[in-house]
Design a protein around this nucleic acid. Sequence first.
RNA 1: GGCGCGGUAGCUCAGUUGGUUAGAGCGAUCGACUCAUAAUCGAUAGGUCGGGAGUUCAAGUCUCCCCCACGCCA
Length: 576
Amino acid sequence: MPKGHPMQRHLITSAIPYINGIKHLGNLVGSQLPADLYARYLRARGHEVLFLCATDEHGTPAELAAAKAGKPVAEYCAEMHAVQADIAKGFGLSFDHFGRSSSPQNHTLTQHFAGRLADAGLIREVSEQQVYSNADGRYLPDRYIEGTCPNCAYDKARGDQCENCTKQLDPTDLINPRSAISGSTDLEVRETKHLYLRQSALKDDLDAWIDSKTDWPILTTSIAKKWLHDGDGLQDRGITRDLDWGIPVRRGNEDWPGMEGKVFYVWFDAPIEYIACAGEWADANGDADWERWWRTDKGADDVRYTQFMGKDNVPFHTLSFPATILGSGEPWKMVDHLKSFNYLTYDGGQFSTSQGRGVFMDQALEILPADYWRWWLLSNCPETSDSEFTWELFQQGVNKDLADVLGNFVSRVTKFCRSKFGETVPSGGTYGDRETALIEELQARVTRYGALMEAMEVRKSAQELRAIWVAGNEYLQAAAPWATIKVDEAQAAMQIRMAFNLIRLYATISSPFIPTASDRMQSSLGMESADWPEDVASALSSVQAGQTFAVPENLFAKISDDDRADWQSRFAGTRG
RNA sequence: GGCGCGGUAGCUCAGUUGGUUAGAGCGAUCGACUCAUAAUCGAUAGGUCGGGAGUUCAAGUCUCCCCCACGCCA
């Protein structure tokens, strides 16, 4: 462990993606990818990291997707979890565990929390009217009821709101209501009982807690504050549903009289999976101790917990989930920093899962390696405002940064050396003024890069990293070993040795962004991965004369205009 | 409709608590170099900081009004 950087413990979670289908690039860049960047960086600095993610599996959309696929919902979810896990792996997402909100661990924990909340008087029972569809054999959530809007006569208004005139509706307002699932009009209103979490009773606690988070992004606190203070303030929320697929409502280990056949609502059990996932991780790894990550009375008081999510998820993470934890009265670790992202747009519009618009994760990996996507998405991530994906911007960014600046640097250095000195780093010469100046510049830049990564300034980190790559080309251009070698072979050998050291430095510090290419750079030198270059001067003398190397062919191939045009038209339509 | 985030060079974006001639990358133009993935390096051009009013010795940066885009509304 380098001096001045005592080891820290970091718990990192990414918003958990919903199970029904493959996520698009907007989902990826909004939480999983930046979370992975941060996790990889902290590990590279020698910190202890537990990085968790999972699939969010409960709720009506999962049931419907399973029905559409003609499979039992449990089987469907198991399959889709495997698919998502595989794709996550393809993108190099370095989760310590990729869990499932349907896990036994989450069942137990969710029921436990509900019991604690009930004991604390924070759960109340509410009787309400719900629409039941006889044809579908199930209760219908408001948005799954369609009918004619009483306000504007639009005939596809949903039970919660009319998309045409935006009027908020109650399902019973609709004229000629029908099931959006089957189209059946055989509907009836039934009386059903549900549990509500009394978030309103926790409003002041939540308010004080949010106020204590002075270093959170404005986007985050403003959303939380709005929900806390808007109108009548924070509203109680139903935490149960009349569904089959979900976590059965139980009060801890005991039955909950009157709640038979009901399950917890997905928004209640999904965030609890963050905790349960640590339990899954522990069980999958020979009973590792997971409570030291989550219980402040069992060692988690020195853990720094960071959550990553898209802005649409902020209310759940700043209010609902904290309400669950605070209300339990137990010493669970609460989030320290919450990093939220805006949306990535696709060619001027929205990425859309339901409409199949944009590029989906599996398709992205079919056409290009993960590093291309990782680099472009992260260096252009929607950090302070929405940002746009277009094929032209993507092609431009990838070709320039990865192929021309970095890839070509590696190429020119290794090929020059091979032709003049052979496939061994040459000896001779010693670093002079130009090298000292370069080391000084890079020391400053690498330090700044580290500080930006630490602060999760994603775009700025990428900018600084790029500037570090550029510095290598600047050096080479100024030193001009191809000219030096004609007059002073030892001097040229020294210059090219410096260049090899730069390659190794780049491999190390670039790995959070482009892990695969970093590995290739590292292994082309036949050396083990280096420690973080705390001291750039020593890092830049770690590759020594006599070290053999191999020329890595085309670290990054360029995206041609034909490719771009091809993909542009291929992804313009909707996904089949 | 309410609320939220934005509107800075052709494009994508930086601009800390208001303070000297408003910055970067890409693109464009010119030049250098020739080791390299027709790559690289340097230089130049380009903006009345959405519009208007106000506070101030001083405003892209604060206040008010307006316009535009996007998003959210359990």
